[in-house]
């Protein structure tokens, strides 16, 4: 009997050593946001996906991707210590009270999608108009600032907002520049045009559970190293090239 227990205990110790050797971090994200995260041929792809894989390699942990709705990401991160959120998430002061954010890693700017011929050209033109955006994104915050809460319509995804723009239920949709470019390229709707009104966006950051400052530090260090190595330029070339071509 003692022997059996001894074997079990040693097995358990072995197992825990193995786990410690390759700690697995769960990445909660919403892969409906190209070019930051999307699914292609059954594989998760995108700027954020490449970034977190590079970070994991530098910091020495394994990642496991878990797809979910955008507004579910935060609950996962808040309730699970080993889960991080990497999903084009804007850093805001208020959110920092409930989760930790890594240093900001990109600020890609915002664009405005309108119907061709609607004559909206500047942010001032948008005042009082019905503007759509994905709920809880930097575009949502920008829209609310321009046209007020009562005129801002928020959606589960950016494409839902575009559907309402096509259906004449909105005057404009605000979206992250790379995201708007990528999704509209796939939509091929001539009646929609993109205008850059120089709207200010928030930085994206990686969400980390407040109970896990060690992980946050590892991620921040890795981000610094990657920046020094010129990794972000590589990513920009890989994922934003069609945007440059469009301009």
């Amino acid at each position: 009997m003692k022997k059996v227990i001894a074997i079990l205990v040693s097995l358990m110790m072995l197992a825990s050593v193995a786990m410690a050797a390759a700690e697995t971090i769960v990445v909660a994200f919403n892969p409906e946001y190209p070019p930051f995260e999307y699914v292609e041929n059954g594989e998760y792809m995108g700027y954020d996906v490449d970034l977190i894989k590079a970070i994991a390699e530098k910091a020495g942990f394994d990642v496991e991707f878990e797809a979910m709705a955008f507004d579910a990401v935060i609950s996962e991160v808040m309730t699970k210590k080993d889960t991080i959120g990497v999903s084009g998430i804007s850093i805001t002061e208020e959110r920092k009270l409930n989760v930790d954010f890594s240093e900001g890693y990109i600020n890609a700017g915002l664009i405005v999608v309108i119907k061709d011929g609607s004559g909206l050209a500047t942010a001032d033109d948008l005042k009082g108009k019905k503007i759509g955006a994905q709920l809880g994104t930097t575009s949502d915050f920008a829209a609310e600032e321009i046209t007020g809460r009562e005129n801002t319509e928020t959606y589960k995804t950016f494409l839902d907002a575009i559907k309402d723009l096509q259906g004449n239920k909105l005057d404009a949709v605000i979206v992250d520049k790379p995201v708007g470019m990528a999704l509209l390229a796939g939509l091929a709707d001539d009646s929609l045009i993109i205008v850059d009104m120089g709207l200010q966006a928030d930085w994206y950051g990686i969400e980390v559970n407040k109970e896990n400052p060690e992980l946050l530090e590892k991620i921040n260090n890795a981000l610094k190293e990657l920046e020094a190595e010129g990794f972000f330029e590589e990513l920009a070339v890989k994922y934003f090239s069609n945007e440059e071509a469009a301009e």
Binding site: M78, T79, E94, R95, L97, D164
Partner: peptide, 23 residues
């Protein structure tokens, strides 16, 4: 709330997107 009508559930969603409170 799926068609972005700001009824009671959506109101909760909206506030949650600002505060990042889990529930």
């Amino acid at each position: 709330s799926y068609i972005a009508l700001t009824e009671l559930t959506k109101a909760g969603d909206y506030i949650r997107s600002r505060t990042y409170s889990a529930f």
